[in-house]
Amino acid sequence: MPLSEIYFYMILIITQLLSFSIISGVEDLKEKKYFLRYLKIAIPISIIGILMELIGWNYLCDLQCVFICSVPIITLIFSKGIINLFKLIFKKEPFQMYRNELSDGIWIENKGDLANKFYYQFFSFTILIVPIIALVVIFKFLNDIMC
């Protein structure tokens, strides 16, 4: 495997790790300052994917590199949308849980109340599953069209 191909796959793996950090640190997305911080990281990564596609440094099907590098920004949008949807529908602040305990973000401490444990578990399940399912469906759609 040539060194350039190894670098290519390393970039793709790093973008996916950022996406998992976004999903695991949802508490940070509730504050605009931290949401914008994640966004400032995700946008250049998406641009890197576009540049990789434009210069032909892509070992995948057409546009898959752009999609994979755009996963962090798509995850941010889905996560923020789910947070706002839960606030709108249930009129209650959602908090993330992990293994039946409140889960903190990277910068924000989780201030939830375990009296609402079922609601928080439902939110945590939704915030984990919806972006992953949406990304798989989009990837499958692109794969069917482009490959």
Rank of each mutant, 00 (worst) to 15 (best):
A115P: 09
P131Y: 03
Q121W: 07
N100P: 06
K91E: 15
I129D: 10
D104K: 01
E93F: 05
S124W: 03
F95E: 00
G112D: 02
I106T: 11
S124Q: 00
E101D: 13
L102G: 02
F123R: 02
N110T: 00
I127N: 00
E101G: 08
I133C: 14
E101I: 08
G112C: 00
K117N: 11
G112K: 00
D104S: 05
I127A: 01
A115V: 10
A115K: 14
N116F: 10
N110L: 03
K92L: 10
G105I: 01
F125L: 09
I108C: 09
I133T: 06
N100W: 08
K91P: 09
N100S: 14
K92D: 11
E93L: 03
L102Y: 05
K91S: 15
K117H: 13
T126D: 05
K92T: 14
S103W: 11
G105C: 04
I89H: 06
N116T: 07
R99Q: 15
S124Y: 01
E101M: 09
L114D: 15
L114C: 12
Q121R: 10
T126V: 06
V130I: 14
S124H: 01
D113P: 05
G112V: 02
N100R: 10
E109H: 11
W107F: 12
Y120E: 01
L128T: 12
I132H: 06
K92G: 10
S124V: 01
F95A: 05
K91I: 11
I129L: 15
F123T: 01
F125P: 07
E109A: 13
D113V: 03
G112F: 00
N116K: 08
A115C: 10
S103P: 08
T126R: 00
Q96A: 11
I132L: 12
Y120R: 02
K117T: 09
N100A: 10
I106C: 13
K111H: 12
E101L: 09
I108H: 06
E109K: 15
I108T: 10
G112I: 00
Y120T: 03
I108Y: 07
Q96L: 08
W107M: 10
I129V: 14
I108P: 06
P94N: 06
E93I: 04
P131F: 00
L128W: 07
K91G: 13
A115I: 11
W107K: 09
K111D: 13
N100F: 10
S124T: 02
F123H: 01
E101N: 11
F118Q: 13
Q96G: 08
L102S: 04
D104H: 05
L88Y: 13
E101S: 12
D104Y: 05
S103R: 12
I106A: 15
F95R: 02
P94V: 03
D113K: 07
W107A: 13
D104F: 03
E93C: 04
E93R: 03
L88P: 09
Y98T: 11
Y120I: 00
F122Q: 07
P94M: 03
I133W: 10
Y120V: 03
F122H: 08
E101T: 09
S124N: 04
I89F: 06
N116I: 05
L128G: 12
G105L: 02
Y120S: 03
E101C: 08
V130A: 04
L128P: 07
I129T: 12
W107R: 09
